Amino acid sequence: MFHVAHSEAGSVSARIAQVRAEVADTGTYRHTTNELAYGARIALRDSGWCTSGVPWRRLKVRDLRGYRNAAAVAGECVEHLRLATNEGEIRPLVTVFAPDTPGTPGPCIWNEQLIRYAGYSDGMGDPRYAQFTDTMQGMGWVPPDDRSRFDYLPLVVETAHEGARLFTMPREVVHEVPLEHPDIPEFAELGLRWHSTPVISNMRLTIGGINYPAAPFNSWFVGAEIGARSLADEGAYGAAREVAEALGLDTSSERTLWRDLATVHLNRAVLHSFDKAQVTITDHHAEALHRLAWLRSRQKPSPARPAFRLDPVAAQRARTGGPARFAPGAVEETRPHGRLAELMRLHSLAAEASA
């Protein structure tokens, strides 16, 4: 794919021969910087997470494949958030850390996104992450003395040689938008807010058979992700009722459609507030048209294509705080997949034939 798109890259057959020789010697191979950037851009374009307006061909890819230690990975995650936030003019980025190799697995990030809010046993905060919050406290994280509905969870980076380590997300690097309504001044008194930059951090980037278990990436928010999914939903903050009460809506019966009206006002407040704060955001109507166009044009799924993949265990880890990836008897494996596995199989067959 890379050579088809970049005729100046030279002979593809020569590159494949080089890759096969490297696989034969080491059990894996290393992407060139240009191959890595191209694969990451294609993976984001085809992932469904690439929101409308993202210039995927110019997407900045940070090549940090030399980073394996937890503290270094955490520090660069903070830098990714700072660069991506860009004072509100959200900049789409992908940061790629060390890959899995036959002898040395790469680091992984437990968190679903770099910024997630804690959920406490008394109901305060985001209940979606209540179990994760409990696990973090069991691992030594101490919540703020003055707990709130929007306390940042620690970043958890796990490596094979260090285990899982917790890192505090610096408050100064997190850009949050306080929510207000364009027509209802009392709305601001609810104290609702949300962080500006959605950096997805627990998906595995796979390119040409190489797995990068830590490759955080971001585009920008769709307003309804915040208003409807995170704030209004009863399984999340459940703020629809307090918004309805603040608006004086009749909540005595679902048939009054108070929940629908409250959700619309929440979505409107999100878009208005992000626009007022000059933070990049898109609305769900524009995004629906973009997603339909994406669905019509997307390639058929194939294990050989670059992709961001969410493993079931990684999804569980992001909500419950476990299991550890490198615990004894862990179910995850770091063996090659897809095209790399096929290259190794063909090399093995060739070796047997020559013998």
Rank of each mutant, 00 (worst) to 15 (best):
residue 256 T to E: 12
residue 281 I to Q: 13
residue 308 F to E: 03
residue 280 T to P: 06
residue 299 Q to N: 09
residue 266 L to T: 07
residue 305 R to H: 15
residue 320 T to C: 03
residue 323 P to H: 01
residue 303 P to Q: 06
residue 249 L to P: 10
residue 290 H to L: 03
residue 314 A to T: 02
residue 328 P to C: 00
residue 257 L to E: 05
residue 289 L to I: 04
residue 261 L to G: 05
residue 247 L to W: 10
residue 259 R to G: 15
residue 289 L to Y: 10
residue 305 R to V: 05
residue 297 S to M: 13
residue 313 V to Q: 01
residue 239 A to L: 02
residue 266 L to M: 08
residue 242 E to Y: 05
residue 325 R to L: 04
residue 241 R to G: 03
residue 303 P to T: 10
residue 266 L to I: 10
residue 307 A to C: 15
residue 254 E to A: 11
residue 244 A to H: 11
residue 244 A to R: 02
residue 264 V to S: 13
residue 302 S to W: 07
residue 327 A to C: 03
residue 286 A to Y: 08
residue 274 F to T: 05
residue 299 Q to C: 02
residue 275 D to T: 14
residue 241 R to S: 06
residue 259 R to D: 08
residue 294 W to Y: 04
residue 279 V to H: 11
residue 244 A to D: 01
residue 242 E to D: 00
residue 306 P to G: 15
residue 269 A to V: 02
residue 301 P to D: 05
residue 244 A to N: 13
residue 301 P to V: 07
residue 327 A to I: 00
residue 283 D to G: 07
residue 270 V to E: 08
residue 320 T to P: 01
residue 311 D to P: 05
residue 327 A to Q: 05
residue 294 W to E: 14
residue 262 A to I: 09
residue 247 L to G: 08
residue 258 W to C: 15
residue 279 V to F: 09
residue 279 V to L: 09
residue 255 R to E: 15
residue 267 N to T: 04
residue 268 R to L: 14
residue 248 G to I: 03
residue 270 V to C: 11
residue 320 T to M: 01
residue 303 P to G: 04
residue 253 S to D: 15
residue 300 K to D: 08
residue 273 S to E: 06
residue 307 A to F: 02
residue 239 A to C: 11
residue 318 A to P: 06
residue 244 A to L: 07
residue 240 A to D: 09
residue 300 K to T: 06
residue 279 V to Y: 10
residue 244 A to F: 05
residue 252 S to M: 12
residue 245 E to C: 00
residue 328 P to K: 00
residue 309 R to D: 15
residue 271 L to V: 13
residue 248 G to K: 14
residue 317 R to D: 06
residue 272 H to D: 13
residue 318 A to G: 01
residue 246 A to R: 04
residue 280 T to M: 15
residue 237 Y to S: 06
residue 299 Q to T: 08
residue 290 H to N: 12
residue 317 R to Y: 02
residue 304 A to M: 08
residue 266 L to W: 00
residue 242 E to N: 00
residue 250 D to F: 11
residue 288 A to G: 13
residue 243 V to I: 12
residue 258 W to I: 14
residue 311 D to Y: 04
residue 275 D to S: 13
residue 254 E to S: 09
residue 330 A to G: 02
residue 314 A to S: 11
residue 303 P to F: 07
residue 242 E to L: 06
residue 289 L to M: 07
residue 252 S to I: 03
residue 284 H to W: 03
residue 304 A to S: 14
residue 248 G to E: 14
residue 285 H to I: 09
residue 285 H to N: 10
residue 238 G to L: 07
residue 297 S to L: 06
residue 293 A to D: 08
residue 282 T to E: 13
residue 320 T to V: 01
residue 302 S to E: 13
residue 289 L to P: 05
residue 287 E to S: 10
residue 280 T to D: 08
residue 300 K to I: 06
residue 240 A to K: 07
residue 269 A to I: 04
residue 245 E to G: 01
residue 324 A to K: 01
residue 302 S to D: 10
residue 299 Q to M: 10
residue 316 Q to R: 02
residue 330 A to F: 02
residue 299 Q to A: 13
residue 269 A to H: 02
residue 268 R to F: 14
residue 289 L to G: 07
residue 328 P to T: 00
residue 304 A to Y: 08
residue 239 A to S: 10
residue 263 T to F: 14
residue 263 T to R: 14
residue 238 G to A: 03
residue 253 S to T: 12
residue 238 G to D: 09
residue 295 L to N: 09
residue 313 V to F: 03
residue 300 K to P: 02
residue 248 G to V: 12
residue 328 P to H: 00
residue 317 R to K: 03
residue 270 V to W: 07
residue 243 V to P: 02
residue 254 E to R: 08
residue 308 F to G: 00
residue 329 G to E: 00
residue 330 A to T: 03
